[in-house]
């Protein structure tokens, strides 16, 4: 009894899908302020006062609806970091580059962003950071080019 023993055929292709993402009403206000005035703001919960940044319209702590933005200085503290050395198709920067988890003064949650303007060997958790803004801004999170030592 002869079974099928031939090689499978290999197909290679792409799935190409354009899509949109509405950031919503509250986050729109945040991105417009970032683009127009280089101001970073957090979302303040009316019930438990928690400030989440980047702003989300639901309080992560008490599930309340959040509609108020509060301005932050933009300065913050590095919680932890890593340096990326490998390359893949989806990165916004060419490696090597550093990413850090940064907690802004006045915010209760942290953001992940790039760390620049500093030698990788000099990056230390706990260091003070400030944002560097792009000259041409398009109302997205990359309007902050990176955070640098303050």
């Amino acid at each position: 009894m002869e079974a099928v023993k031939k090689e499978p055929v290999l197909f290679e292709g792409y799935v190409i899908m354009p899509y949109k993402y509405s950031v919503g009403s509250l986050a729109s206000k945040f991105f417009i302020k970032l683009r127009d005035s280089k101001v970073l703001s957090g979302a303040k919960c009316p019930k438990c006062q928690m400030v989440n940044f980047p702003p989300r319209s639901v309080c992560p702590k008490c599930f309340s609806k959040v509609e108020e933005l509060v301005e932050l200085s933009g300065k913050g503290k590095l919680e932890t970091f890593t340096v990326v050395h490998y390359e893949s198709a989806v990165q916004a920067l060419k490696p090597p580059y550093a990413i850090g988890v940064i907690k802004l003064d006045g915010a209760d949650t942290a953001i992940t962003h790039f760390i620049g303007g500093v030698d990788f060997k000099d990056i230390k958790p706990g260091m003070k950071l400030e944002p560097v803004f792009k000259a041409k801004r398009d109302a997205n999170i990359l309007d902050i080019e990176y955070f640098q030592p303050a």
Binding site: Y21, S22, V23, G24, S25, A27, S28, R56, S57, V58, F63, K65
Partner: peptide, 26 residues
């Protein structure tokens, strides 16, 4: 079209309505 909400906010709208209908909390 509903560009003034993101995916999560759309869900939150339905969830809070269901909780109110049952008079329960999350």
């Amino acid at each position: 079209r509903r560009p003034y909400v993101n995916d999560g906010e759309l869900i939150y709208d339905a969830v809070t309505k269901a909780l109110a209908d049952a008079d329960l909390s999350i």
